[in-house]
Design a binder for these strands. Structure first.
Lengths: 203, 203
DNA sequence: GTCTATAAACCGATAGAC
DNA sequence: GTCTATCGGTTTATAGAC
């Protein structure tokens, strides 16, 4: 939250607005977010938000861009080291598991965006998937994992299983609370998933 | 010439409003839907919508209730027959695959609801999951599937893999279009997933 | 750059004629 | 039961003072 004084600090103001906007957009989506609420959370006035970002659309784009940039500047985009197929699959699951855990705002905004009709891949996503596809195909060619299953199926299955664990955490807890299932920890789920996929892909 | 009363058709109007509301809520979520748009799609006036359903909240609840009721009155809630663990798992995946394919509005509304903060299970969901848990535990006790993996992990993994296939269909197609992966058909994905899970769960 | 005031459009909901 | 007209509130965005 910015200082109450009307001092001129355009860069600080912009950052505060982006921070506030990110939290509101992640929480409520594009349609549910209001510039007033973004202004309130960032300590600026509504018109000041629009002075710096021109429109709600442009602010949304700026928030998305900052998230992607800051993620790819971290170790987010790093490709795992080469190794056996088993190591690669293990790493693929672990990395994607950590991604969902560590980037909740990015994941929530992507989910809102998908429902709101935006199917375009986020920047950086492409490269990772090309790397996944290549690694799976090579492992199949070397005979380390079964080749009767499509690389796309492998990726979607793993991403889906990880995605749902984090996205439906509250929902799953509700089921456990109502008497279905015994709860399992994040670590146990990661272990179960990895073990199940590794065996499922054995030739 | 018909009496003016003859064109009054409260039941037909209610149905048309529920139809319109379902399509708008599924498309845009609760916050993004407007009563004016619902009125437009159902051929009624805005006030007539509120005359029949009192408020936007109540209309939303009525839409949800109708979806659940009509689903559970179909064969939706039917439990699969008993059999070997292999048959049960196969059926569990197939049924859940068909559910996502055949109930897009219900699935979209559940997704909007989750992002909007509603974690309560939908009516009917509970029973199915209790049945899943029971069947998996029994199969583990009989030694037909491995028992080092939690029944919750099995269910979440399967639901997640199915969920993402249908929810991210457009997104996946974008990836394929941009050069990652060769596309696979719905049937091929179902076959790959089933085969991978069955082998992954073998003792 | 930052504010207050306000425009113009749209929102959910109501009043009242028929 | 269905409509038109309209209320009070909120929305994004702009005008203009400082």
């Amino acid at each position: 939250m910015r200082d109450k004084r009307a001092i001129r600090d355009p860069e600080g103001t912009k950052k505060a607005i982006l921070d506030g906007a990110e939290s509101v957009f992640a929480e409520r989506g594009f349609a549910g977010a209001s510039i007033r609420e973004i202004a309130r959370r960032s300590g600026a006035s509504g018109p000041l938000v629009l002075f710096h970002f021109h429109s709600k659309d442009e602010l949304y784009r700026a928030v998305k861009e900052r998230i992607v940039t800051s993620w790819s500047e971290g170790k987010g985009g790093a490709m795992p080291p080469e190794g056996t197929a088993e190591n690669f699959i293990e790493d693929m699951i672990k990395t994607s598991f950590g991604f969902y855990r560590d980037n909740p705002n990015m994941v929530r905004m992507a989910n809102w965006g998908r429902l709101e009709g935006d199917d375009a891949p986020w920047s950086g996503e492409e490269d990772i998937h090309k790397w996944y596809e290549k690694s799976i195909k090579e492992a199949q060619a070397r005979g380390e994992i079964r080749d009767d299953i499509s690389p796309l199926s492998v990726t979607v299955m793993i991403c889906g299983a990880v995605h749902v664990w984090w996205e439906y955490h509250g929902h799953i807890e509700e089921h456990v609370k109502h008497g279905s299932y015994d709860m399992v920890s994040d670590e146990k789920y990661l272990k179960d998933l990895t073990s199940m996929v590794l065996r499922g892909l054995k030739p």
